[in-house]
């Protein structure tokens, strides 16, 4: 009897909407609270009971972050590292993924297996050897070092995603271009790449975002403000005694901004790319 009643309540569309709105409120509240906190004057962030909405909205925290702290430098560092990594991963990944997808050769299955196998290597396990190698090469505290480790983090994943896009590409289209006198590389660059542009863009966006969000390697391999990415630099506002919540909130908004923007405009492509990367379609 009880089960019947529960089923009846659950079947109502109203119940679904109500539960969904409750869940989404909980999911989105942290972002909204952070946005509100970033507009509070500092004194207000230390008041008890806490205010939910800023009572005297001000841009003080943003002013502090942009003009009186090294955050701009950290944002710039993150940008350089993310763009560099994206370039390496996409350019280095395009050709290899295409070769593995469309021009299978003896042993290409094994190569593919190696690519998958490398994805199960947890990054934390390679922290120590990378640290040894990087200090041996005198690359600690450089952009190049961060780009290299981030390439290690996202490259196998990018290959996997790109390959799943190229696998869906109609072979006849490539063949007819070649019959028409196009070279194989020409057919790839002039036909396959433009047609798969959305998929490639998704891979690029994901690589960019995940490099931007990366923290562990940035923290271990850099210790000067000249190269530290924003995820590490944000700790600037955390003191032993005092945490500057308004500045932290403003920094959080800046740091989360690329993700929020990309997720707003290209959500479908990102989500499709990420799920295709996790399980082969």
């Amino acid at each position: 009897m009880l089960k019947g009643t529960i089923a009846k309540i659950l079947e109502k569309p109203f119940t679904s909407y109500l539960l969904l709105i409750i869940m989404l409120t909980i999911m989105l509240a942290p972002i909204i609270f952070t946005a509100f906190t970033s507009f509070k004057p500092r004194a207000e962030t230390f008041r008890w009971p806490p205010t939910y909405f800023p009572e005297e909205p001000t841009l003080q925290a943003y002013h502090e972050v942009l003009f009186r702290s090294p955050m701009v430098r950290h944002l710039f560092n993150s940008l350089v590292v993310s763009l560099g990594t994206t370039a390496i991963v996409v350019v280095g990944g395009l050709f290899s993924a295409y070769g593995l997808s469309q021009y299978a050769f003896k042993g290409s299955k094994i190569v593919l297996l190696i690519f998958i196998a490398t994805r199960i290597v947890p990054p934390i396990s390679l922290l120590v050897p990378f640290y040894i190698i990087m200090s041996f090469l005198h690359l600690l505290n450089t952009y190049l070092c961060l780009m290299i480790v981030n390439t290690f983090l996202w490259y196998p994943f990018a290959i996997w995603m790109l390959k799943s896009f190229f696998d869906q590409f109609p072979r006849t289209l490539i063949d007819s271009a070649i019959v028409d006198g196009c070279t194989r590389t020409g057919a790839f660059l002039r036909i396959v790449v433009p047609v798969s542009a959305i998929g490639i863009a998704a891979v690029a966006i994901i690589t960019f975002l995940w490099t931007w969000n990366e923290f562990l390697f940035g923290m271990i391999f850099t210790n000067t403000r000249e190269v530290q990415p924003i995820t590490v630099g944000a700790h600037y506002f955390v003191g032993d005694e005092l945490v500057q919540w308004d500045s932290i909130a403003a920094t959080a908004m800046f740091t989360a901004l690329p993700g929020l923007i990309f997720f707003s405009i290209a959500q479908r492509a990102i989500v499709r790319g990420l799920t295709a990367g996790a399980v082969k379609e």
Binding site: M23, L24, M27, L28, P30, I31, F33, T34, T37, L209, W212, N213, F215, T231, A234, V243, W245, I248, A249, A252, T255, A256, G259, L260, F262, F263, Q267, V271
Partner: peptide
């Protein structure tokens, strides 16, 4: 709407929830 927290860097999520 339900996807947005995915875009937040984990460190930032840590700071947000710490607050």
């Amino acid at each position: 709407l339900s996807m947005f927290s995915w875009a937040v860097p984990l460190v930032i999520s840590g700071f947000i929830w710490r607050w």
